[in-house]
Design a protein around this nucleic acid. Structure first.
Length: 574
RNA sequence: GCGCCCGUAGCUCAGUUGGAUAGAGCGCCGGGCUUCGAACCCGUAGGUCGCAGGUUCAAUUCCUGCCGGGCGCACCA
């Protein structure tokens, strides 16, 4: 399914031809298969191609070539739409479009502006995208950075195609991790006070723990409060939690990411939501007791084994609060729940899908986007990280070193399910090797065109006020064709939850722009001297300049729209 | 052992949900700025798409089985 203006007009014409042919008894298929229009790989195959004749072959009981001929015969609007209609080998229908029709793309971009490419397939359905959701037990690291970039991009993509999107951070502020955090800070605190301290076995070793302890000591020194160890440890935990959550917020903010909602796990426990969620499952006959523990019968819905929700010691498992959390999201009325997880959690998918079904929803209502690990390199050499010793590279360090735009672009360059090599040296290079600058440069280059034009008193009218008929050069039409496909890219990217498609597209578009820019002149040379030299120097009339400026406006708009959806800035100059 | 993900140029990866002679960047080699931004462009080389079957008019794409790598299989989170 295509969504460009031109593609839609062509699809309509083709559909008309099919129906017309059927009316005349030349075709007999009951319902037409999906009509796809692709950009062929080779220029001699036209500009748009459809394989419809081939997919009709079985139901028509004819050979595809013959079917293609029938379709072509019934294509009544040939004169207005097509330069050429060709049938090739098995049954490809290769179409070459009239340049004037392609010009509609520029008018469409101009008319829609920042909204060009957006759609309404979501029809206002509500979706909640939950991402990052790191424990507030330390600063965010690179892996979280990738999750953040992917989550934000997915949220924006869904928004762009018409969903009503809420982004949420789930704070794991209950349970063992928090206790360990408190105990770790407490141990450091005692050390500072010169008291014997036992550092918890699996405690947090990062230097930030000591920092929190130091600040707590300052605070406590000014007070004459209780010296009860349990109380002090509790304060350690509370202070550490507060500071670390704030740190996470700040880090995300400087990465250009803000959540509409922060949801606390502990609030679920305190409000009794966890109990209610389990009661609800109990009422549905999906809980049972065994060996002193309470189990969720997730195998009913295809999970490979049943899962404990309440342990022998009476504590809830992590799954219990996750059940309550997802139930809460459903009760808040979201039609679609998107969870962005580290790929190492993929084993959780079946049990969460079971939760969906347990509450009477199709499992498709939950969509998990997996994000693989980032392998950090510096000039080709791996930067080793170890969580145990606390020697990992933080997201903050990466942003400070390479910048938020570059970091995001790299995080979004590859399918999120695959391992990512992230070379810090490459990411901060301001060179051709760096794809971020490559794309941004294309945008800035066009911006500088406006500045130059203004300084020379050349007008840059809107495409709708411009005669863009002079755009007939293959390079010009190639650029427009690329622009025409952006709505499709956006929609496929959104429906597959794969932002890297947009990143990749932008690189291709930028490449076409740079090639064009290098090969063709847009503004007349400065000083207005007669244009030069031998050969095929094309004549640069004011009309042509105006038409090309209109084209440039379209390219710039689409680059900006694409970067925006990825959460990356589109600079006017660099 | 079971499950999920990945295997495409020397390296890092795309591949439009099954289409035509499989693409890009990096790297190597060689070219291009007195004119709109050279953070750019142009050219050459590089492939049994992990292997073997199957479905199909058509398979890198779907199915099965192997091989190789990663991850997961807790009354941890």
């Amino acid at each position: 399914m295509s969504h460009g203006v031109v593609q839609e007009m062509v699809a309509t014409a083709l559909l008309g031809a099919l129906n017309d042919a059927k009316k005349k008894g030349r075709l007999k298929t009951e319902t037409w298969p999906a009509l796809t229009l692709d950009a062929p790989k080779r220029p001699e195959w036209g500009e748009l191609a459809t394989t419809i004749a081939m997919s009709l072959a079985p139901s028509e009981e004819k050979n595809p070539h013959e079917i293609a001929e029938i379709i072509a015969e019934h294509l009544t609007e040939t004169e207005q739409l097509f330069e050429r209609v060709e049938i090739v080998r098995p049954g490809f229908l290769n179409l070459t479009i009239k340049p004037t029709l392609w010009h509609e793309v520029l008018r469409e971009i101009d008319a829609r502006g920042d909204a060009y490419g957006k759609a309404d397939v979501g029809r206002g359905h509500r979706v909640i995208v939950e991402y990052v959701s790191a424990n507030p037990t330390g600063p965010l690291h690179v892996g979280h950075g990738r999750g953040a970039a992917v989550g934000q991009a997915v949220a924006r993509l869904l928004e762009a195609v018409g969903y009503d999107v809420t982004s949420e951070y789930y704070i794991n502020d209950a349970g063992r991790q928090m206790k360990l955090l408190g105990a770790s800070v407490y141990a450091r605190y005692r050390e500072l006070c010169g008291q014997p301290a036992e550092f918890p076995e699996e405690g947090y070793h990062g230097a930030y723990i000591g920092d929190v302890a130091r600040r707590l000591k300052h605070k406590l020194d000014d007070e004459t409060g209780s010296s009860d160890p349990a109380e002090i440890e509790a304060r350690c935990r509370a202070l550490a939690y507060g500071e670390l959550l704030e740190l996470i917020r700040e880090d995300l903010a400087s990465f250009g990411i803000e959540f509409q909602s922060w949801f606390s796990e502990e609030s679920l426990l305190k409000s009794g939501a966890v109990e209610q969620a389990l009661d609800d499952l109990q009422a549905r006959g999906l809980l049972f007791e065994q060996e002193g523990a309470l189990w969720f019968r997730s195998t009913t819905f295809g999970d490979e084994k049943d899962r404990v929700v309440k342990k022998q010691d009476g504590e809830y498992t992590y799954l219990a609060s996750d059940i309550a959390y997802h139930r809460d999201k459903l009760r808040r009325g979201y039609d679609l729940l998107v969870d962005v997880w580290g790929a190492d959690h993929h084993g959780y998918i079946p049990r969460m899908e079971a939760v969906m079904q347990a509450y009477g929803h199709p499992k498709e209502r939950l969509r998990v986007v997996l994000v693989q690990l980032v392998k950090l390199l510096r000039a080709g050499v791996e930067v080793k990280m170890s969580k145990r010793t606390g020697s990992f590279v933080t997201m903050r360090e990466v942003i400070d070193e390479v910048g938020a735009d570059a970091a995001k672009f790299f995080f979004l360059m590859r399918d999120s399910r695959t391992h990512l090599d992230f070379d810090l040296e490459l990411a901060k290079q301001r060179s051709a090797d760096n794809p971020v600058y490559y794309v941004q440069y294309a945008h800035a280059r066009i911006a500088s065109l406006w500045r130059t034009a203004a300084s020379r008193g050349i007008e840059c009218p809107r495409p709708k006020e411009t005669d863009i008929a002079p755009l007939t050069d293959p390079d010009e039409l190639g650029l427009i064709r690329k622009l025409s496909v952006y709505p499709d890219i956006l929609q496929t990217s959104a429906s597959t939850f794969e932002p890297h498609r947009v990143t990749y597209y932008l690189q291709q578009l930028a490449a076409l722009l740079h090639t064009f820019y290098n090969k063709h002149r847009i503004l007349p040379p400065a000083g207005g001297q007669e244009h030069d030299e031998a050969g095929s120097a094309e004549e640069l009339t004011p009309k042509r300049t105006a038409a090309r400026l209109a084209l440039m406006r379209g390219v710039q708009q689409v680059i900006r729209n694409g970067l925006t959806v990825l959460g990356i800035s589109a600079p006017e100059q660099m």
